[in-house]
């Protein structure tokens, strides 16, 4: 027998995931226009890999395949993997990354809704540890033609140094650490930088920001995570920058570079592996921002968001437990 309520809002996991994919489109468009059109090929490879992998693992797990494939969650994971990987990777690195995300991180932990870690971030960490050089080949914006990009992805000969440059974060790090230059001189030296972040790449940040605002408007995400992430990153980098402007890059640089905007709206906001209470979300996103900044500035990797997210994923059960909101009637709010 069916019980109340007998009516439901026309919402579904599929519509949520579709909204996330739509929200990624401005960022993807900026990617294609400004950096590397081959990202579309990567998205296609990743999508197919994700769906095939999901179908296979569901068969092994003896679970119904159709509802899981049609919920589009695997596609979202695949796209996020692609968007945090360098675009000119050989195709098999993308495939491997997606397999790790879908098979190991998602399904070995029980499938949709069960994974304690962010699949795309585990894939990124695994790949950067396994293939550090491949995972560091970021093309300078708009300098390689599409045919070359395609050759690189589909297995052409690789002449690494000739075609890849340093990312903005990498150039800043190397400049500050090895040559001992000041922030300003680093920014002027290299053609890597644009107005605020990496040249060309900063448009992606803008695209992700636009998509994030769309998700906020559609109530796919709440304001807590993006606001806490952006504010914390700005405040922490601002403190260092104010203390020593020559040695530390300004907040806007940190926000516009690397995966900051992608992370603020699409990575830390992953509901499955993130904190869920309003206060918990603030703590979680702020924690990611702090750790990411520390890794960027003092750590061994130019970009630290992936590690930061995984470290904070570890803390989620504790954060959620300690930040349960007061229940109606239990906060003693007599007016």
């Amino acid at each position: 027998m069916i019980h109340s309520p007998y009516i439901r809002k026309p919402a579904s996991v599929q519509s949520v995931m579709l909204a996330v994919l739509l929200a990624l489109l401005p960022g993807v468009t900026a990617y294609v226009m400004q950096v590397a059109a081959v990202v579309v090929v990567n998205l296609l490879i990743a999508t197919v890999t994700a769906l095939v992998a999901e179908a296979l693992i569901l068969t092994l797990r003896k679970r119904p395949i159709a509802p899981a494939l049609s919920d589009l969650s695997a596609v979202v994971t695949a796209w996020l993997v692609v968007l945090c990987f360098p675009p000119i990777l050989p195709w098999w690195v993308t495939v491997l990354g997606v397999l790790i995300a879908i098979v190991a991180v998602k399904h070995l932990y029980g499938g949709l809704g069960q994974n304690p870690f962010n699949p795309a971030m585990v894939a990124y960490c695994a790949m950067i540890v396994a293939f550090p050089s491949l995972m560091s080949q970021w093309p300078p914006a708009g300098q390689i033609d599409f045919q070359t990009q395609l050759d690189l992805v589909l297995g052409g000969a690789r002449q690494l140094d000739a075609i890849t440059g340093a990312t903005a974060l990498d150039a800043m790090r190397t400049g500050l650490r090895t040559s001992g230059a000041s922030v300003d001189s680093v920014l002027q030296q290299s053609g890597t930088f644009g107005a605020v972040g990496g040249r060309g790449w900063e448009w992606l940040a803008l695209g992700y920001l636009a998509g994030g605002l769309f998700m906020l408007a559609r109530r796919i995400i709440t304001w807590h995570m993006p606001v806490a992430f952006i504010a914390t990153l700005a405040v922490v980098s601002g403190i260092f920058w104010l203390a020593e402007p020559a040695r530390f890059a300004p907040p806007l640089f940190h926000l516009a570079s690397g995966g900051a905007m992608l992370a603020a709206f699409f990575i830390v906001t992953d509901p499955v592996s993130g904190a869920t209470t309003p206060r918990g979300k603030l703590i979680f996103a702020a924690g990611v921002a702090v750790i990411a900044y520390l890794i960027r500035v003092f750590g061994a990797f130019p970009e630290g968001i992936a590690f930061a997210v995984l470290l904070m994923n570890l803390c989620v059960p504790l954060i959620d437990m300690k930040t349960q909101p007061a229940v109606f009637g239990h906060r003693g709010s007599r007016p």
Partner: peptide, 29 residues
């Protein structure tokens, strides 16, 4: 008028239920 509920899918902890709960509970927990 009252279509049978679509098949139940796994909880994705999106928190929509917590935002709708008039008793300030975390229904997904």
């Amino acid at each position: 008028l009252f279509p049978p509920p679509p098949p139940e899918l796994p909880c994705i902890r999106c928190g929509a239920c917590a935002r709708a709960c008039p008793a300030d509970l975390q229904p997904f927990e």
